[in-house]
Design a protein around this nucleic acid. Structure first.
Length: 586
RNA sequence: GGUCCCGUGGUGUAGCGGUUUAACAUGCUGCCCUGUCAAGGCAGAGAUCGCGGGUUCGAAUCCCGUCGGGACCGCCA
């Protein structure tokens, strides 16, 4: 090794030792006759001080610049009285530069590495290797490493076996859009990158592995969001001979232990509360509620159903939220909230402010309602002086979509949430199917292999829309962290589901024949879950975007700005694949 | 596919139709400086204001297009 110690490890015990450190010049402070250099490596920072008695080293020290790579040999000594730095882990000591070697120089970096400063996102991505030098990225990726280690250790202790599954897989058009990989050997045919190892892990259950997991890379060719990248990592897990309770308990224990081992964050509620999807939809308007604050949706449909206001009386649903102490919002602010809910299809936003006497003082609509109804609404909303009440009248979907997002927006802008609180919960009892209006058929609300609740199987023939799936979601602070289900393990039931979603026998056999066939060879009851590692790391790192916990993320347009991917390819490469491009050239 | 925000010395911002010779901070270069730690002091270099077109006597500033980044809708079994 070119160094005897690492910067984070040098301390009082090393005083008098001659050691060699190597790393990057973090900062330098040149006093002319005396030069200080903060030397950084992965483990910490140590102050190096020049000593004019070592003439040659002293001279090199003055030539050092930010991010030069150097090695320094010298004696460790205590800093003189009054010159220690309590803010630095190694602030009591320093290294005397007796021998200094410049291992590599550096151009001036395109942005500051040695301090926290805002940097344009495209610059960060282009120079990601420099961005990763910054302390917060190292911290985030270390935490991510710890999370993955914790999972591997814990699940191995529980006798899970980690199995790698193929990246070159088969297209499944019913889910998200696939990334396709052309086959050279099979001209005109394509592999697909897996959206998740779903089928493979079920086949591992058929194989009798009983307890499987994988830290698995998944690929979905859909547009990006703050919590979505085209490739992402899941803890993928499956067990045979389990019921829902087994999976929920295992995962809850895993995450609870992880959080207490790796962070100082606290759970809002333990054990985690459980809700049916119906309940969270009606109370929060979403199946991934943020439970760190109230502001629940209140149904006032019946109170206004007889009113003269047709937008109210004719709406399928009218619901409101109470923005506590937001009665001081300006007209402009309220207008921007109205604009906001229009994003979600709402025609408008009805509002009311509660005055000093506890009744409506100003409102966009209340004058059209009788005073008794006004008071009933305030009472039902539990409105108090200074509150702002906001209502949306529309279809159930639109009311829920707009109010749940409005709820998040207002909380974001007015509440000071403790960043250390994690409000995990489970959401269960999802409907097995959603009605697809465009295609006029049922779509699976989770995926094709989700088993109905056993008691709801008879409903499949009569009222499929009322059948509940055995699906469960883990939700935290408004993010869907994990989702899973008990799977179908019987061929006939699987076939019935294919029928219900309008998958023709022939197509079903082409795409999923292997699954149906496997189910004929002694498939155990099984179920599992997939947990988003990026989202979990983001949450525990208190970040707002999963890019911050991914070493080399892609931009919102799914490009890699560092290497320039995707890129053109040689015509030779295409001809090997028998592929011709037909781009519109203008 | 759509909506919105951003793009000005290396970096982060200000300027938003003429008082601009484009300002400030930081970084960078040089000089001074032996106890600093975001060291300090002095001097200096560094920007055709993302790109293309238009409006105007005059455009960093207004308009249109385009490229890149970001937030969101659609999409994400």
């Amino acid at each position: 090794m070119l160094k005897t110690h690492v910067c984070g490890d040098v301390n009082f015990d090393n005083i008098g030792d001659v050691i060699t450190l190597a790393g990057w010049v973090h900062r330098r402070r040149d006093h002319g006759g005396l030069t200080f250099v903060d030397l950084r490596d992965r483990w910490g920072i140590v102050q190096v001080v020049s000593d004019p008695n070592y003439e040659k080293s002293h001279e090199i020290m003055t030539k050092l610049r930010s991010e030069y790579v150097v090695s320094v040999t010298g004696v460790v000594r205590a800093r003189p009285d009054g010159s220690s730095n309590p803010d630095m882990l190694t602030g009591e000591i320093e290294l005397v530069a007796q021998e200094v070697e410049i291992l590599n120089s550096s151009k001036t970096p395109p942005f500051d590495i040695n301090k926290f400063s805002k940097v344009d996102e495209s610059l960060r991505q282009k120079y990601r290797y420099l961005d990763l030098r910054r302390n917060h990225m190292l911290k985030n990726l270390s935490l991510r490493h710890d999370i993955v280690c914790f999972i591997r250790n814990k699940l191995s202790d529980y006798e899970f076996i980690e199995v790698e599954t193929p990246i070159l897989f088969k297209t499944t058009p019913e889910g998200a859009r696939d990334y396709l990989v052309p086959s050279r050997v099979h001209s005109g045919k394509f592999y697909a990158l897996p959206q998740s190892p779903q089928q493979l892990k079920q086949l591992l259950m058929v194989a009798g592995f009983e307890k499987y997991f994988q830290i698995a890379r998944c690929f979905r060719d859909e547009d990006q969001r703050g919590d979505r990248q085209p490739e992402f990592t899941q803890l993928d897990l499956e067990m045979a001979f389990v019921e829902r309770e087994d999976i929920l308990n295992l995962m809850e224990a895993l995450v609870v232990d992880m959080v207490s081992d790796l962070t100082d964050m606290k759970f809002q509620e333990k054990p985690w509360p459980r809700f049916t999807s119906e309940e969270v939809l009606s109370r929060f308007g979403t199946d991934k509620p943020d439970l760190r604050f109230g502001m629940e949706l209140v149904d006032v449909t019946e109170l206004v159903s007889d009113s003269d206001l047709r937008i109210f009386s004719e709406a399928e649903v009218v619901k409101g939220i109470r923005a506590e102490k937001c009665g001081s919002f300006s007209r402009k602010q309220i207008d921007s909230l109205t604009e906001f809910v229009r994003n979600y299809g709402a025609g408008g936003l009805a509002w009311a402010i509660i005055g000093d006497d506890g009744t409506i003082s100003r409102s966009s609509f209340m004058k059209h309602l009788q005073i008794e109804i006004q008071n009933d609404i305030v009472k039902k909303m539990e409105g108090l002086t200074g509150d702002l009440l906001l209502f949306v009248a529309s279809s159930k979907e639109i009311v829920h979509e707009s109010l749940s997002n409005l709820r998040l927006k207002i909380s974001n802008e007015t509440l000071d949430l403790d960043p250390n609180i994690l409000s995990f919960c489970w959401v269960i009892d999802f409907p097995l199917f959603n009605w697809n209006h465009e295609e006029n058929r049922w779509d699976p609300s989770h995926h094709l292999f989700t088993s109905p609740m056993i008691e709801d199987i008879p409903l499949l023939d009569r009222k499929p829309g009322e059948a509940r799936g055995s699906q469960y979601d883990m939700v935290c602070n408004g993010y869907e962290m994990a989702g899973g289900s008990i799977r179908i393990h019987e061929r006939e039931l699987q076939k019935k589901i294919f029928d219900l979603i309008g998958l023709e026998e022939k197509v079903a056999l082409e795409r999923f024949g292997h699954m149906l066939e496997a189910f004929e060879y002694g498939t155990p009851p099984h179920g599992g879950i997939a947990l988003g590692i990026d989202r979990l790391a983001m949450l525990l790192a208190k970040e707002k975007n999963i890019r911050e916990v991914i070493a080399f993320p892609k931009s919102q347009q799914a490009s890699d700005l560092m290497v320039g991917a995707p890129s053109d390819v040689d015509l030779d490469q295409l001809s090997d694949l028998n592929i011709q491009l037909s781009l519109n050239k203008e």
